[in-house]
Design a protein around this nucleic acid. Structure first.
Lengths: 172, 172
DNA sequence: GCTCCTTGGTTCGGTCAATGAACTCACTGG
DNA sequence: CCAGTGAGTTCATTGACCGAACCAAGGAGC
């Protein structure tokens, strides 16, 4: 999908968005970034994705302005990937696709969402049922009935926490 | 993405949705179905997609309950693909991804949307700015400033028309 | 000072999917 | 009888994805 053989000749803005986001794994990477995953190895633990593919996706998303790559320590240079404003604005798309999957494909969701302030549920639009539109940072994620992965990153993610809050896995 | 090598081990409903919808071309096929494209050859004219891939995507979407394949004539048996209720419910996702692409990747949209009854613009959520939530059938699509394809199907699509209304290309 | 471990990748062969061109088949209209 | 259309299928080539192995730059332990 990436270079050359893209959605050339397509005339809609959707095709341009899909050129960046439509590859395998890409939206799942963005989803986890919004859930608070920051580091290369944590993405890898949670997604079980080949490292070469993950490196490619992170580079594309960084170049596309969805994630920002920034150093979090200097001595061995290490980088983390955080969602930009553009990345955060993908939250409604990601949430709604998840809701659609639950409704039409089935299965229980492993995590649920509510307005952190008032505890209100989210509408399919990501609005709070009581308070209206929410910024993702005001949404709390908490464990639901569905199956959960059992790696350190996923375990950290299954404690109640806000979206965008950096995720720190337990020290193994 | 399709068989076997899927998002196995992923625990979220998003990954299940992407298993059906995340392949190359799939969301563009659904988008065009919502825009009113019905026939195999019309999808092909508008998307410039290899026929083998189009046949595969239509079969997957039909099996996944997003499109319905139904005969529109019997003598040489011919079928058309129409969005199911589940397919129509993908409209907010498709619209929002398009809006995101316009905002963050740029480019002018070839088609715009408004509430057919009152002429009001759409919010990013697909709600009418004046009247609130809309069914896709109440949304009118009309030409915008962006570039347009120049095939018979796209020309028919660039006349003002409602979503979901079957598209009949000019008789060449 | 030496060795092992962790993080964040890169390289590589094998496999799987996408592409475009050619072909099929059942009609239909002239 | 012949060309044309709609809806595909078949096939060889190219590109993408996969998992495993490898690499490099620091620590940590001894």
């Amino acid at each position: 999908m990436a270079l050359g053989k893209d959605y050339n000749g397509q005339d809609c803005t959707l095709s341009r968005a899909l050129e960046l986001l439509g590859e395998r794994w890409t939206l799942l990477v963005v989803q986890n970034a919004i859930y608070g995953v920051r580091r290369f190895s944590d993405f890898q633990k949670r997604l079980d994705i080949p490292k070469a593919v993950l490196a490619d996706r992170l580079a594309n998303l960084t170049e596309g302005g969805v994630l920002e790559r920034r150093p979090y320590q200097a001595s061995p240079p290490r980088y983390e990937y955080v969602p930009t404003e553009a990345g955060v604005e993908l939250w409604p798309v990601i949430y709604q696709l998840g809701v659609w999957g639950k409704r039409h494909i089935g299965g229980e969701p492993p995590r649920l969402f509510r307005h952190a302030e008032c505890g209100g549920d989210l509408l399919p639009s990501t609005d709070c049922v009581r308070c209206g539109p929410l910024h993702p940072g005001d949404i709390e994620m908490y464990p639901g009935p569905g199956p959960k992965r059992d790696d350190p990153v996923s375990r950290a993610m299954n404690r109640p926490r806000r979206l965008l809050e950096p995720l720190v896995p337990e020290a193994s």
